[in-house]
Each structure stands twice: as structure tokens, then as C-alpha cells.
Write a protein that binds this DNA or RNA. Structure first.
Length: 568
RNA sequence: UGGGGCGUGGUGCAACGGCAGCACACCAGACUUUGGAUCUGUGGAUCUUGGUUCGAGUCCAGGCGCCCCAGCCA
């Protein structure tokens, strides 16, 4: 199977798959998405999802979406729906939806088989005893600052029970005869193994908790290590792609495959995505939502898929970003700026341009006829001629951006100021004559004159202006709410900080008196625009007909802001 | 004083023994009816010490640094 150069998957994974196909280790490719249904998808999950998806796709294989629902105490059906919805929005297509719980019966049979082989046993030790008998790591690790040397584990007193007794106890564990925590089934490997995961790992624990799919049938539930790899085998998954934290699990993954003689799925690891300023911790994400710090799982400041979607980030941008990162096994932190650059790139090519004034300042053209209204031709997207043009109404009284006028201009400022001429986009050249102030000295109106010969924005005499500003016609403009977002956190690695110390108090600014051009009046939620010279925006579901609400996705690059900040 | 993984500009990736390249960021400039986009240019990196080799980011040996692992979580 040949894969094109424009591969969307990491080269070291592609090479491994190609090799497996070439050597005949596998004759087909099948991958799996393994979400645990206990939370919403975020940008970090996308990486694994996309790698699994594109690996299957590029090799003409299949992708299964398999929910890892082995812990009924934490999981809910709600998330099963949400995850599928979000993954579908991203553009991922799968061939089949399965659940770890689909395989509970077969898995149990395999456990019985291991018991019969003398490779698993029921342990009656308490959790504390088990932990104490597992041995220790040396000092210098985060678990053991002062503790002495490595200590191997010691065998459980129950380690050498007879097969018959183990079989009986396991059966009764399954039937719910014992209290939670009283017994577990363990694989019998090696309590002195240097890899702690191999020191007789727990396979089943007792939980008298109803499961969202199997109800009250089971009183024991499998641990990750005794489920995931077995499910991979049962489903004929060829490549089980996961993050680096599972590297240490691989020997155990392979131990079960070998002892059971089952289909030899291959686990390959890659580094997870770390994005600066993004919250990935499930626990903290939940806290943000439940405490009301953000508006919900789809708050546009969150890097959940739902948040990104509401914010206006197109799925293609996420795909471009993630697949464009390249991949190694290195621990890495990607800068949010890189994500934003991709978002701008995609939106620049696709978003329709509109004029919107966020902080309005009245502009009166004194020599323009009082009742005249002209329809100006405006280009919808200079990057895409096929997007066509539209008409925008123009009249004597307009609103412009407060930032676009200065009574006393700083150096290099070439927008509107008394005596200066600028272009009103797609309209006329206007020259500022004077301002009107209220009793407090605030500017309430800017007055100017226009040059009737410059309709459309070009001067017949060839004179140039250094700035073009956007505007809306006062009598035609639609009032809108605009929500401006900044980073939710003040630190690059919010997962590592205390929530109340790292929140950016200015992460949300709501502007309720914005004025936008009439064509935006009935924009549908999810529509994305570039408000010229301001940024990219997406219509929010809170919008009502004639009362649109917009979320700022990202700003435009603002070179004036840079100049201005240097002046200070 | 365990086991495992990883070290290339500020950040993320390339270079599979042969001129260290790309993107983002940064800086300078050109162009512009978006101070957008586009274009051009500058600066800046192989963790370290040895070894092998005509030649090492790459191979070998030793250091150093960072990350992961003692849930009946996944």
C-alpha cells in the first residue's frame, strides 16, 4: 500500500505500518478511537483522533470508535452522544461504534482461561496492603523524596491459591457475593519486576455499580490493562495508537497477547499535544464549568471542541493545525500563536468580509446631501472572487470606530484627525474639518467633508491617502452584541496552576452597542465573517432575528498595535 | 539509588554518514481601497565530553538535563 507524500500522519507511524504490511505481520489496517465517555472532547484529543483516522484512511483500512466504558462510576451516556457529535463535526468518519462493555462476557472467559493456566489469582489483600507490598521507587522521584532505595514487591499471601479456589472465588466475585474492595483478580507475573506495572497488575475489581449499558449484570469491572488490549485483539485492531504515557504499559499489553495466544495488535505511541494557554485537565475543565467561571462546556474561551466550534474555529483549521505539527515522541509545547496562525490562514481564504463598528463614533459629512442614500459596491472576499459583491448603504451620518479618530495623532498614525484625509472603504475620500464635544470635553461627533469625485474610493487626480477606514450608515446599521475573548489564563501552562491564581479577569469583554452593516442582521449561528480591519467573528447561537450576537474568533494581525506599543 | 521515554534557533518539525532546511514567532523593508493578505530580506539551533570516519545532528562510549511509572482511573 503506497501512501502519498502529502501524508497526514507522522512518518514514524507510517513507516511502522508500511513495514507491517510489507513483512506480512498484518494484511490490512484497522485502528480505533478509544475515548472514555466521561467528558467532552478537547483539542488534545483531536491529535489522537486524527492520527487514528488518517492512518486508517491512508492505508485503505477501517476505523472503529470504541468507548472505553470500564468504569461505570465515572461514565455517562451523555458523553457517548457528545463525543460522537464532536468527532463528526471535526470531520472524522468511522466504520463502526463499539463499547468495551460489548466484550465483558468474552473477556471474562479469557480471565478464567488465565486462572486455569495458573497465570491469574484472586487476592484478598486490602488496598493498603497491596500498595505496601508493591515495593517502592527510589528517592529522587516525586513519590519518594526521602525514601531510601528501590524495594522490590513482596508476594501476596494469596498468590499461590489453587486453581479451583481461584475459579470459585472469581465466579463469586462476578456474582456479587463480596463487598467492594474485598478482593481483586490479579495477573500472576513478577512482584520483583523493575516495571511496576508488571508486579501482578489488577485485572478485575469489585464494583456494585450499575453500568450505563450492561445495567446490574456485572459486579466486577475490568481495569484498563485488562480490557483495552484484549478489545483490540477481539476487534482485530492492527495498530493501537496511543500517547507516550502508555509506553510503560506495552510489556503488559504484549504479555497478555502472548499468554492468551490472541490476535497480536501492535501498540505504537506518540507524544500528546500540549498547547500553551489551553486547559486540558478534565478535572479542572469540569471545575471551570461547574463553578460558573465559564458559561458551559461550549464556552468560546475553552479549547473543547464545542468551545472552538462556538468560537468560530473551522474544523479544517483544527485538522490543518494538528496534522501540520509533525510528530515525534518528544514532549513538546506548541504555542497558541501557531494555532491562531492556522485559523487566520483558513479564515482569510473563506470568510466573507463585512463592516462592523465595535465602538462607534459619529461621523457627519457636512457637504453630503441630507436625504441621499447611495448603494456602494463592496467585495465579499478579495481572496475569493467567486464570493462576489454586495451593496452597502451610505449616507450623510455614519459611524466609524473610535480608534480610527484621534484629535491629536501620535507619530505614524495616519487614520482620521483634523485636517487629514482618509478613505471610507468602498465609498469616498473624506477630510476631517472639526469635532464637536460635550460639556465634559468628550468628542461626540467628528465632522468632515467629502469629495464627490472620489466615489468608490479613487481620486481622479491620482492623490493618495494613507488609510482606509470602515464605517456603517447610521440610519441603516443594525445594533449587535459582540463578545471579545482573550486567553482565559494568564500562564502558559494552566494545567499546572491553581485555578483562582491563573484566571485572566479580562478574558471576556461584551460590547452591546456595536453597529454592523445591514446584511448581518439575520446571520445564522455558526456563520463566520471577517469584520474588516477588526478580526474574524462567528455568529453566536444567542442571536435573534435583527439582534445578532458575534464571537470574536481571532483578531487580525495588527501592525499598528505593535507600532503603538513601541511608542509607549 | 529501579524501569522506560526524550534531547536541533524562542516554539513545533526536517535533514535516514555529505552545504543544518521549513513553519510559527521576532526584526527590517516593498506593496496595498483591510496598518489584513501577499512579497523580499536580517538575526538566531544540533545538551556535553571523548571516539570511529576524508567527513558526525546522524554511528559508538561516558556524562548531563527533562518527562513518565508505586489507582481496585483511563
Amino acid at each position: 500500500m503506497e501512501v502519498t507524500k502529502s501524508s497526514r500522519i507522522p512518518s514514524f507511524i507510517r513507516e511502522a505500518v508500511e513495514e507491517d504490511l510489507r513483512t506480512g505481520r498484518f494484511t490490512y489496517v484497522r485502528t480505533r478511537l478509544p475515548p472514555e465517555p466521561n467528558g467532552y472532547l478537547h483539542i488534545g484529543h483531536c491529535k489522537a483522533f486524527l492520527i487514528d483516522y488518517f492512518t486508517a484512511k491512508e492505508f485503505g483500512g477501517e476505523l472503529y470508535l470504541r468507548f472505553d466504558d470500564t468504569n461505570p462510576a465515572k461514565e455517562e451516556t451523555e458523553f457517548v452522544e457528545a463525543i460522537q457529535e464532536d468527532a463528526a463535526w471535526l470531520g472524522i468518519k468511522w466504520d463502526k461504534v463499539t463499547f468495551a462493555s460489548d466484550y465483558f462476557d468474552l473477556l471474562y472467559e479469557w480471565a478464567v482461561k488465565l486462572v486455569k493456566m495458573g497465570l491469574a489469582y484472586v487476592d484478598d489483600q486490602s488496598q493498603e496492603e497491596m500498595s505496601a507490598n508493591r515495593g517502592t521507587l527510589p528517592k529522587g522521584t516525586k513519590w519518594s523524596e526521602t525514601e531510601a532505595a528501590v524495594r522490590p514487591g513482596v508476594d501476596s499471601p494469596w498468590r499461590n491459591r489453587s486453581v479451583e479456589e481461584n475459579l470459585d472465588l472469581l465466579e463469586r466475585m462476578k456474582n456479587g457475593e463480596f463487598p467492594e474492595g474485598s478482593r481483586v483478580l490479579r495477573a500472576k507475573i513478577d512482584m520483583a519486576h523493575p516495571n511496576i506495572l508488571m508486579r501482578d497488575p489488577v485485572m478485575y475489581r469489585i464494583m456494585h455499580v450499575p453500568h450505563h449499558r450492561t445495567g446490574t449484570k456485572w459486579h466486577i469491572y475490568p481495569m484498563y490493562d485488562w480490557s483495552h488490549g484484549q478489545n483490540d485483539s477481539m476487534e482485530g485492531i492492527t495498530h493501537s495508537l496511543c500517547s507516550n504515557e502508555y509506553i510503560i504499559h506495552r510489556p503488559l499489553y504484549e504479555w497478555f497477547i502472548e499468554k492468551l495466544g490472541i490476535f497480536p495488535s501492535r501498540q505504537i505511541e506518540f507524544s500528546r499535544l500540549n498547547l500553551t494557554y489551553a486547559m486540558m485537565s478534565k478535572r479542572k475543565l469540569r471545575k471551570l464549568v461547574e463553578s460558573g467561571i465559564v458559561r458551559g462546556w461550549d464556552d468560546p474561551r475553552l479549547t473543547t471542541l464545542r468551545g472552538l466550534r462556538r468560537r468560530g474555529v473551522p474544523p479544517e483549521a483544527i485538522i490543518e493545525f494538528v496534522t501540520g505539527l509533525g510528530e515525534t515522541k518528544n514532549d513538546s509545547w506548541v504555542e497558541m500563536a501557531q494555532f491562531e496562525a492556522v485559523i487566520r490562514d483558513v479564515l482569510n481564504k473563506t470568510a466573507l468580509r463585512r463592516m462592523a463598528v465595535l465602538k462607534p463614533l459619529k461621523l457627519v459629512i457636512d457637504n453630503y446631501p441630507d436625504d441621499l442614500v447611495e448603494e456602494m459596491d463592496a467585495i465579499n472576499n478579495p481572496e475569493d472572487p467567486a464570493a462576489g459583491t454586495r451593496k452597502v448603504p451610505f449616507s450623510k451620518v455614519l459611524y466609524i470606530e473610535q480608534d480610527d479618530f484621534r484629535e491629536v495623532p501620535p507619530p505614524k498614525y495616519f487614520r482620521l484627525f483634523p485636517g487629514n484625509e482618509v478613505r471610507l472603504r468602498y465609498a469616498y475620500l473624506v477630510k476631517c474639518t472639526h469635532v464637536v464635544k460635550d460639556e465634559k470635553g468628550n468628542i461626540t461627533e467628528v465632522h468632515c467633508t467629502y469629495d464627490p469625485a472620489t466615489r468608490g474610493g479613487d481620486a481622479p487626480d491620482g492623490r493618495k491617502v494613507k488609510a482606509t477606514i470602515h464605517w456603517v450608515s447610521a440610519q441603516h446599521a443594525v445594533r449587535a452584541e459582540v463578545r471579545l475573548y482573550e486567553q482565559l489564563f494568564t500562564v502558559e501552562r494552566p494545567d499546572e496552576g491553581e485555578l483562582d491564581e491563573i484566571l485572566n479577569p479580562n478574558s471576556l469583554e461584551v460590547l452591546s452597542d456595536c453597529l454592523v452593516e445591514p446584511s448581518l442582521s439575520n446571520s445564522a449561528p455558526g456563520e463566520r465573517f471577517q469584520f474588516e480591519r477588526v478580526g474574524y467573528f462567528c455568529t453566536d447561537p444567542d442571536s435573534r432575528p435583527g439582534q445578532p450576537v458575534f464571537n470574536r474568533t481571532v483578531t487580525l494581525k495588527d501592525s499598528w498595535a505593535k507600532i503603538e506599543s513601541k511608542l509607549k
